[in-house]
Amino acid sequence: MTSLAATAPIPLPAIPHPLRWLIALTAGIVSALILAALVRHVATGSPTLSARSIWLPIHLGAAIPIVPLGAWVLVRRKGDRLHRLLGRIWAALMMVVALSSFGLVGMLGHLGPIHILSLAVTVGIPRAVWLARAGQIRAHLRGMVIIYGSAVAAALFAFVPGRVLGAWLFG
């Protein structure tokens, strides 16, 4: 015998509470470092972007908002229209960052180890979007968390001496 009662919707997976705090904390720290580097760059007149290729302003313009925006998308409610809109914006920014990185000259020459991350992002973002559309939400969430964590790690490496944000922040 079948029941005519409506079944409850399957709840979307959420980021565990301790991981939410970690995401928020790292996003705050990295965002504060980026803001401090930008303020110091403007205040001290350190080398400008005009002396470098067009790829650097494109890369930085897309990279700067990905840390706070990605954190917001990960810690807020999932599955609603705002989540999908902000997720699409974040994914597009990540693709711009990844693709523009191939136009940058790294510390080790043109291509360096960081470009492995760029390749992973150019494959991972479309895959994670496909997973969400295919209804594989847990796999989508796992992929996006990994990509976000990689982006935060890459942002922290941008403060290494010899890199642009490092030079802006530390002189």
Rank of each mutant, 00 (worst) to 15 (best):
M1P: 00
M1F: 07
A5F: 11
A6Q: 11
A6N: 02
T7V: 13
T7P: 13
A8P: 02
A8R: 12
I10H: 13
L12Y: 03
H17F: 13
P18H: 13
L19R: 07
L19S: 09
R20H: 03
I23W: 00
I23D: 00
L25T: 12
T26P: 03
G28W: 02
I29Y: 05
S31G: 06
L33P: 00
A37P: 09
L38T: 08
R40S: 06
H41W: 15
V42L: 10
A43D: 12
S50I: 09
A51M: 11
A51K: 12
A51V: 12
W55V: 09
H59Q: 14
G61I: 08
A62M: 11
A63H: 02
A63M: 14
A63P: 03
I64V: 15
I64F: 10
P65W: 09
I66C: 11
V67M: 11
L69E: 02
G70P: 00
V75S: 06
K78A: 15
K78V: 10
K78Y: 07
D80L: 14
D80T: 09
V96G: 01
A98C: 05
G106E: 14
L108T: 05
G112L: 15
G112N: 10
S118C: 08
G124R: 05
G124V: 10
G124F: 04
W130I: 09
R133H: 10
A134Y: 04
Q136G: 06
V145D: 08
I147R: 00
Y148R: 13
Y148G: 07
A155F: 09
A158V: 07
F159S: 11
R163A: 12
L165W: 01
L169Q: 05
G171F: 02
G171E: 06
